[in-house]
């Protein structure tokens, strides 16, 4: 009997978003990263080509963050210097992009003024020539100011500003991106309707171009809500492919969240009846890999990660399925 595969075709297409700008476009990056462009579910090459494979950004911070031991040991020598940190992430660990988190701007931490904090961004832009993503501290009042300054000093480089959210002055972030030619990350808390709302605000009210938006519908780790995250992203992606232009954007995932799961970092199980948990050095990276891999199947285009081993394995998986 002949097997006739059932074909699925979607009317829509995910917008392509370019991160970074080379000399010819007024920047100093030596390559750009293109996200999106899908016409089918991820890696369904039998339905349609996938022009751009997902990319991986490595997280770096402008002050020492709390890190699981298995992650920290790979960055021990560069934790004090974000420029070195970025170099190591790109050269040794194969990052396609760098995400610089300006967490020292948090009023509850050092409260570094925006104008001073963005000097680190300038250093990083010097140190590495890949596209850059810049995040604030998550403080709703301070972030707009920090990201505005970042947009200013990175003029021409087409960085991504992370993030605009519904409960802050998203319009300032949107304008900063618009005025200086950058991309906005539209971040919502695991709810398809809020994601649609925020994207629409950015498009319609703030007038951001559809090719300048990436969205982060929130990543929950394996065992800690990945079921919500997976299904939320999968629904968003399918809506985009079906033609909902408010949701047809590339998806970004804060995959480093996987390290929040106790299975990733705890030495042993706190539950006595559990079978042995084995060495955490091996449990942690695979937790990040499986979290990323699962969400890659929901449609993630951009992973923000930390463990070099996890980065390497996820890359191999995606290059195999998508290559």
């Amino acid at each position: 009997a002949k097997f006739e595969p059932y074909k699925v075709e979607y009317p829509g297409k995910i917008n392509e978003v370019v991160l970074g700008a080379t000399k010819k476009d007024g920047g100093t990056r030596d390559k750009v990263v293109v996200l999106g462009g899908e016409k089918s579910l991820p890696f369904y090459l039998f339905d349609a080509d996938q022009p751009n494979l997902p990319a991986i950004a490595i997280d770096i911070f402008d002050r020492k963050p709390m890190l699981a031991k298995a992650v920290r040991e790979h960055y021990e020598d560069v934790l004090e210097d974000p420029a070195d940190w970025a170099r190591k992430a790109v050269k040794e660990y194969g990052a396609d992009l760098i995400t610089l988190h300006l967490i020292s701007t948090d009023p509850l931490l050092e409260d570094t003024p925006a104008s001073e904090a963005v000097k680190v961004l300038e250093d990083v832009l010097q140190a590495v020539k890949c596209p850059i993503i810049v995040g604030g501290s998550g403080n709703k009042e301070k972030d707009p100011e920090v990201l505005e300054k970042a947009a200013e000093v990175a003029e021409g480089e087409r960085i991504m500003l992370a993030s605009a959210t519904l409960d802050m002055d998203w319009e300032r972030i949107a304008n900063a991106a618009k005025n200086h030619g950058h991309v906005v990350l539209s971040w919502t808390q695991m709810d398809i309707n809020s994601q649609k709302t925020l994207n629409r605000y950015l498009l319609k009210r703030a007038g951001v171009s559809p090719n300048d938006i990436v969205m982060d519908p929130t990543t929950a780790a394996l065992g800690y809500g990945i079921d919500y995250a997976f299904t939320n992203m999968e629904r968003i992606r399918i809506s985009g492919l079906k033609g909902d232009s408010d949701l047809a954007f590339p998806i970004s995932s804060g995959t480093t969240n996987a390290w929040g799961a106790r299975e990733a970092w705890m030495k042993d199980s706190p539950i006595e009846e559990d079978s042995d948990w084995g060495p955490r050095e091996l449990r942690g990276p695979i937790w990040e890999i499986v979290t990323g891999l699962t969400l890659s199947l929901a449609g993630v285009d951009l992973f923000m990660m930390m463990h070099p081993g996890a980065v390497a394995v996820l890359k191999e998986v995606m290059y195999t399925l998508g290559g």
């Binding site: 948990w277 084995g278 695979i286």
Partner: peptide, 9 residues
């Protein structure tokens, strides 16, 4: 454990 715990979860 590093194979089984993630997959069963």
């Amino acid at each position: 454990p590093y194979s089984v715990i993630p997959t069963v979860t």
